[in-house]
């Protein structure tokens, strides 16, 4: 299967007065063409930073190392003038803040036309509007939306408008950042179905679906990557990750989800005790060490960062418990 995106040892830090916050600290993964790649983890694990930095690395975010190869082209350190062309045409994003992603004083029509014109000066205003209206109808919005301001739309409508705008130029890779988080359950379902339809109609090829909600990923993702404190802990097929989690963090994460048919009174929901480490000054070893119930080799776990290894075909894990007997990686 062809790889659309290949990310190697990628690091993005936040520059603050106190020092560097290592939000994304050496992640390795790839996204195949025509797949939905889920990224999950708790708040502050670096998943949104990762998504945003891939498309628009803006201060206080700072590139700190590694490679990002999109469609065979290294894009992590491109000059802004060239990267500008890539955005929206090759790689696009539905931001976490879709609720205020549009200027309140401009009509949707003007926003759409202005944004597309930045990339395609030859396309006439009418063609742009016609295209947008066609897509709006697909997500159940009437063409009147074009003449409205974002403030006149409901939350679910804004989400759909942003979804249409972001995919208007048929980007190869779409980063969907927490697109279901601000919505009610029925709108969540609708958004996910729309994303599926857009993929089927080839408006987008692959999707990086960032969320903290594994149950949503279970419905849509082909593969899932679990992040913890700026590191990748596990990557695998959705079915494997959910039914047979291997990494102690993934295990705890999956087991903390509510199960169908189990009553609250019978089985209290449990969280993972403890807190994620401070990324301003992260621990030298495994970042999950403090909360880990396993600690297979306490000395090694505490002092050495476990590498991400292919434990089984297509199954990647970063944990000292799964590197034994795998000397070429360990």
């Amino acid at each position: 299967m062809a790889r659309l995106l290949d990310v190697k040892e990628y690091k993005v830090y936040y520059q603050t007065l106190k020092g560097q916050i290592r939000a994304v600290d050496g992640v390795n993964f790839f996204v195949n063409a025509d797949e939905v790649f889920g990224v999950a983890g708790e708040s502050g694990c670096g998943k949104s930073t990762l998504g945003n930095s891939l498309i628009y690395l803006k201060a206080p975010m700072r590139y700190a190392g590694g490679n990002v190869i999109l469609d065979g082209m290294e894009i992590s350190r491109l000059p802004d003038e060239i990267m500008k062309k890539m955005r929206f045409e090759k790689i696009s994003i539905i931001p976490q803040f879709a609720m205020d992603a549009m200027s309140p004083t401009k009509k949707i029509k003007n926003i759409v036309v202005d944004l597309v014109r930045e990339h395609d000066k030859k396309m006439s205003e009418k063609d742009i509007i016609d295209l947008a209206i066609k897509r709006f109808k697909m997500v159940g919005l009437s063409e009147n939306v074009m003449n409205m301001y974002s403030i006149e739309l409901s939350g679910g409508m804004k989400q759909r408008v942003v979804m249409v705008i972001s995919t208007l130029l048929n980007p190869r890779l779409l980063i969907a950042d927490e697109i279901t988080s601000a919505l009610d359950v029925s709108s969540q379902k609708f958004s996910v179905e729309m994303l599926d339809e857009f993929k089927e109609k080839k408006f987008v090829s692959s999707v990086i679906f960032i969320t903290h909600d594994i149950s949503v990923l279970y419905q849509i993702a082909d593969r899932i990557m679990i992040m913890y404190a700026g590191h990748v802990v596990e990557i695998g097929n959705t079915e494997d990750i959910v039914s047979k989690p291997l990494h102690p963090y993934t295990k705890l994460l999956i087991s903390s989800l509510p199960k169908m048919g189990v009553q609250f009174s019978q089985n209290r929901l449990t969280g993972i005790p403890g807190y994620p480490p401070n990324l301003l000054n992260p621990p030298t070893g495994c970042r999950f060490y403090d909360r880990c119930p396993l600690r297979i080799d306490p000395q090694k776990c505490k002092n050495e960062i476990p590498p991400l290894v292919e434990y089984m075909p297509g199954r990647y894990i970063a944990c000292w418990a799964y590197t034994k007997g795998n000397d070429k990686n360990g």
Binding site: N52, R87, I93, F97, S103
Partner: peptide
């Protein structure tokens, strides 16, 4: 603001973002 960031993410020029 978020709309400026969104426009930047979609490759809008600084000129257009400043206009908005």
């Amino acid at each position: 603001s978020n709309y400026s960031r969104y426009m930047g993410s979609l490759g809008a020029s600084q000129r257009l973002i400043r206009k908005y």
